[in-house]
Amino acid sequence: MDYRQTGATAARQAMVCVLGLAASACVDKADLPRPVAQADPAAGLVVIREVGCAACHAIPGVAWPQGRTGGSLAGVGARPLIAGRLPNQPDVLIQWLIDAPSLDPDTAMPPMPLTQDQARDVAAYLYTLDDD
């Protein structure tokens, strides 16, 4: 029996385990649904319509327009990341909604004319969109 080959196989198996654990750590859905304190999802939908978020995004609950520049927000409540980079947590999402470039200078999303309360309501609505 060649012990070097057995050791190499064990090392590969250990590496696969470590990579598997690391990958699973990136997807934290333990606290779904994400509560947003003092927020009203229905008011968030009103803000979304008034501010015109659907000019860039397709948003469930908004029939027109159906923007494609920013991508669909269907299922955003179940996603582990915002814009593929930031943890999808209420405080981060609220800041993202108000001033996305402050969190990611390379984003195409502009700062939005939202108050903290409006952004909180919009986040609460977006977190209701948990199924793609």
Score class of each variant (00 low, 15 high):
Leu86Tyr: 09
Ala58Arg: 11
Val46Lys: 15
Tyr125Cys: 05
Asn88Arg: 08
Pro101Glu: 13
Thr128Cys: 05
Ser24Glu: 15
Thr9Cys: 01
Arg68Ala: 13
Pro111Val: 04
Asp130Ser: 14
Arg68Val: 10
Asp91His: 09
Pro60Arg: 07
Ala58Asp: 14
Leu126Gly: 00
Gln116Trp: 08
Pro111Lys: 00
Gln118Ser: 03
Gln116Asn: 06
Gly52Tyr: 02
Arg34Ala: 07
Thr115Glu: 01
Gln95Lys: 15
Ala63Gln: 14
Pro60Thr: 07
Pro90His: 04
Gln118His: 02
Leu103Gln: 15
Ala37Asp: 15
Asp117Thr: 12
Leu21Gln: 12
Leu97Thr: 06
Gln38Val: 03
Gly67Ser: 07
Ile98Thr: 09
Val51Trp: 03
Met112Ser: 08
Gln116Ala: 13
Ala14Arg: 15
Pro110Tyr: 00
Gly84Arg: 04
Ala37Arg: 15
Ile98Ser: 01
Leu86Lys: 14
Cys53Asn: 01
Asp130Lys: 08
Val51Lys: 06
Leu45Asn: 06
Pro87Tyr: 12
Ala78Phe: 02
Ile48Trp: 03
Pro33Ser: 12
Val18Asn: 07
Tyr125Pro: 02
Trp64Pro: 00
Gln13Arg: 13
Ala63Leu: 08
Val16Phe: 13
Met109Gln: 11
Lys29Ala: 10
Pro33Arg: 05
Asp99Pro: 04
Ala11Trp: 11
Lys29Phe: 01
Ala58Tyr: 00
Ala124Asn: 11
Met112Arg: 09
Ala11Met: 09
Pro41Ala: 11
Pro90Arg: 06
Ile48Phe: 07
Val18Cys: 09
Pro35Lys: 11
Cys53Ile: 01
Ala14Gln: 14
Ala39Cys: 13
Ala55Val: 12
Asp121Phe: 00
Gly77Val: 01
Val122Thr: 05
Gly67Lys: 08
Tyr125Phe: 11
Gly61Trp: 07
Ala42His: 13
Leu126Ser: 03
Leu81Ser: 09
Val18Lys: 13
Val122Pro: 01
Pro110Asp: 04
Val16Ala: 10
Pro111Glu: 00
Trp96Ser: 08
Ala100Leu: 05
Tyr125Glu: 03
Arg120Lys: 12
Asp31Thr: 15
Met15Lys: 14
Asp131Gly: 02
Pro65Asn: 08
Ala119Tyr: 08
Thr115Pro: 05
Val36Tyr: 00
Gly44Lys: 07
Met1Ala: 14
Asp121Leu: 02
Asp91Val: 04
Ala11Thr: 10
Gln116Ser: 10
Arg4Lys: 11
Val92Ala: 08
Ala124Phe: 04
Arg79Tyr: 04
Thr9Gly: 06
Arg4Glu: 14
Ala30Trp: 07
Asp28Glu: 15
Gly71Met: 03
Pro113Gln: 12
Asp131Ala: 05
Ala42Trp: 12
Pro113Leu: 10
Asp121Cys: 05
Ala42Gln: 15
Leu126Met: 06
Pro110Leu: 08
Asp2Val: 01
Asp40Thr: 04
Val47Lys: 02
Ile59Gly: 03
Cys17Ser: 13
Gly71Pro: 04
Pro87Val: 05
Ala63Tyr: 02
Ala55Cys: 02
Ile94Lys: 09
Leu114Cys: 05
Gly52Asp: 04
Asn88Phe: 07
Gly20Phe: 09
Asn88Ala: 14
Thr9Gln: 14
Ala10Trp: 08
Pro60Phe: 03
Gly7Asp: 13
Leu32Asp: 11
Asp130Met: 04
Pro33Phe: 10
Ala30Thr: 14
Arg79Asn: 06
Gln38Ser: 15
Met1Ile: 10
Gly20His: 05
